[in-house]
């Protein structure tokens, strides 16, 4: 896709031996040609391995809502719905935390599990919980595949941090007293990023703003943003990496990918939030006014090279730990050759970004603290 230019976007669909497309096994990739092709293949693999085809009802355990709401997930925005309205247990997988196993409800990471037509799947798992409200908070964020478990965990943590940073930007801009975003001066971009920025502008046909949205977690996070018009919603791409240059590359290439992918990817409609004007503003994600008051900042210089995945994973976990956040991890599948699919939850980090796809969700405690003002967020 994208007419052969670089950065490129590729789409991948996996088929079974019978030639029939495998369930959920589609993905998109971005970046240089080989990088985009590999990315599309790995994303398709991720969606297949974490999707309904490999769901094992025997691998989940029923856990009462009150127990979940009293555990580490009490800091999740969805905990407000575990208030006893439905006492039926929820199907949970066991995740590994520093203190041992922690049950995490499947709905958090598996939208396919809460779809209206998935009643039989839930029945097989012995799950009679009412997911009418909780399905709004369901999202596959934090899932990743890597050539090793370490690489998969690094991708999953970076994605979780990226989504949290985007969520905090939304909260501050539209539920707080305003946000002065930091916009990178495009004249300060290194040559490869300057080229990617120019291509993103050509592909979107609009000004591309590269925002530094790094949060208190101090893992560089970039957002490539195109404001909405009366004819179409906003466009965006985001990236997180210990290397600011790699974070910016991922953001700009994701913007290219999502723009050329618009004809095959279905987007949620934020206008469905019209009954709740404050949340509709979040969903529309129109930063036009905020950008007029933006700070222009030079592109941040890369410090020491991030190093091997193992070292990066240790560093990212340390930065989370410094703010009081602890990842919970689950190995979803391991293929011959060590390719590994994982899912990561970091209790307390925000997933409010679901609102831009038309999901009716609220921020959790961290988002609410961010809305109160520009002061440093409290530690978890």
């Amino acid at each position: 896709m994208g007419e052969g230019r670089e950065p490129a976007a590729w789409h991948c669909r996996l088929r079974g031996p019978d030639g029939v497309p495998a369930p959920s096994a589609e993905g998109m990739g971005k970046g240089r040609r080989a990088e985009a092709r590999a990315g599309a293949l790995f994303e398709a693999l991720e969606h297949y391995l974490t999707g309904p085809a490999l769901f094992d009802p025997a691998a989940v355990e029923p856990v009462e809502p009150a127990r979940i709401a009293a555990g580490p997930l009490r800091a999740d925005a969805s905990a407000v719905l575990l208030d006893g309205r439905c006492a039926a247990p929820l199907a949970c997988h066991r995740y590994q935390g520093p203190g041992g196993a922690v049950p995490v409800p499947l709905f958090l990471s598996a939208p396919w599990y809460v779809e209206a037509d998935a009643a039989r799947l839930r029945e097989r798992a012995g799950d009679a919980h009412d997911y009418t409200g909780l399905m709004r908070y369901s999202c596959n964020s934090g899932s990743a595949v890597g050539v090793t478990a370490t690489e998969a965990l690094l991708h999953a943590l970076n994605e979780t941090i990226e989504r949290d940073a985007l969520s905090l930007l939304l909260v501050r801009a539209f539920l707080g007293t305003g946000e002065r975003p930091s916009v990178v001066d495009p004249r300060t971009l290194p040559p490869e990023l300057a080229r990617a920025h120019a291509v993103a502008g050509q592909v979107t046909g609009a000004p591309v703003h590269l925002l530094d949205i790094t949060s208190d977690l101090m893992v560089p996070t970039m957002l490539a943003y195109v404001a909405p018009t009366p004819d179409r919603p906003h466009r965006r791409g985001a990236g997180t990496s210990l290397s600011p240059a790699h974070a910016a590359w991922r953001a700009l290439t994701e913007l290219v990918q999502t723009t050329v992918g618009e004809r095959i990817q279905r987007r949620g409609d934020a206008e469905r939030l019209a009954r709740y004007p404050e949340l509709l503003a979040c969903g529309r994600f129109d930063l036009t006014e905020h950008l007029r008051a933006a700070r222009t900042v030079p592109f941040p210089e890369d410090g020491a090279r991030p190093g091997r995945p193992r070292d990066q994973l240790r560093e990212v976990a340390a930065r989370l730990g410094a703010r009081g956040y602890t990842p919970l991890t689950r190995t979803v599948a391991v293929l011959p050759g060590r390719i590994t699919a994982v899912h990561v939850v970091v209790p307390g980090l925000e997933r409010f970004m679901l609102v831009v796809e038309g999901n009716l969700v609220l921020p959790g405690p961290r988002g609410r603290a961010a809305a109160r003002g520009p002061a440093d967020l409290p530690r978890a």
Partner: peptide, 23 residues
Amino acid sequence: QELTEAERERLREITEERDENAG
């Protein structure tokens, strides 16, 4: 989609806090 009563209360608190801070 509809917010529950508990969520509506939370949204009300968020917007009231914003209005107080803006004032």
